[in-house]
Amino acid sequence: MDGPLLETKDLCVWFPVRRGRGLGAKKAMVRAVDGVSLQVAAGETLGLVGESGCGKSTFARTLVLLEKPVSGEVLFEGRSLRGLGARELRRVRPRLQMIFQDPYASLNPRMTVADALAEPMIVHGTVPRAEVPAAVARLMERVGLARRTMRKYPHEFSGGQRQRIAIARALATEPRLIVADEPVSALDVSVQAQIINLLRELQAEMGLTMVFISHDLSVVRHLSRRIAVMYLGRIVEEGPAEAVFAEPRHPYAHALLSAAMTPDPRRERTRPRIPLPGEPPSPIDPPSGCRFHPRCPMAGPECALRGPEAESCGPDHRAWCMRLSAGKADDASVSF
């Protein structure tokens, strides 16, 4: 198939909230995702990074139809997911699966592993009934769970093993797209690496397309071919992982990547870091113009006035900063 497997066009997901108390309360909108356009090619991994509250989880949930956009659309295999009827939804859903952060909360405590894995196969009819037990056994083996544990309940497993169950469950319907929202964040370091390796192997083997979300930049870098950096509901930079990590062009991306700590004491103590003053503003009334301008070390007066357009900064690499076109961000990045 030509074209991206997944595409979002100007996607906006807002949530109504009440501000103030009692009778004086006013309705307002939390603009969790506010105009995100991204493309993910078949078989590739897009890493989505950003800090809490930037909208990355809402974006992820919208991709797998767990949230409804207020405007814009998600296209999967070239078709809009907007306004699909129940029958069509049933056809699409098994192809879009999600892995959640907390394997303690995402599994039903009353279902054995075998039942948890068989359920999606039966509901979506992806495997004939008679073959379900064999398919479950194969799946367990594939994710590294001993077959003899199939009658056990989630509480009998460790965190890493539970995440294996959650991964197996996501794979049960033979999806094309996996959205993984912080899938290794709740795990211990030594177990994290096992799960990351498993995800990589599965992706290569099954030709999966993945949207991978994590606050751990080293994990994202390891797994992703492309990276998108999100700030306050918008993408501020996207491009090939190596290019973005080597030379982030948006001031926020630059600050975020410079804050990540590496296990190298000499480098950690000497390398420059860009301190970011303050904290992200509220997504209820985001700043005018460029959303990062109140905290941006390079903002000029024009940044408050209008939103930035995408600036190309290399093959397949874009950043939304108007100082880039003016050439000023380049000068400033030298003095970082």
Partner: peptide, 24 residues
């Protein structure tokens, strides 16, 4: 040593991580 080697930031690009087998 195993803990350091298992980190994604120390792994060469494209190679699998050197995970510590087993569990604590």
């Amino acid at each position: 040593e195993a803990l350091m080697d298992s980190l994604p930031s120390t792994a060469p690009a494209g190679a699998p991580l050197r995970a510590i087998p087993g569990m604590p």
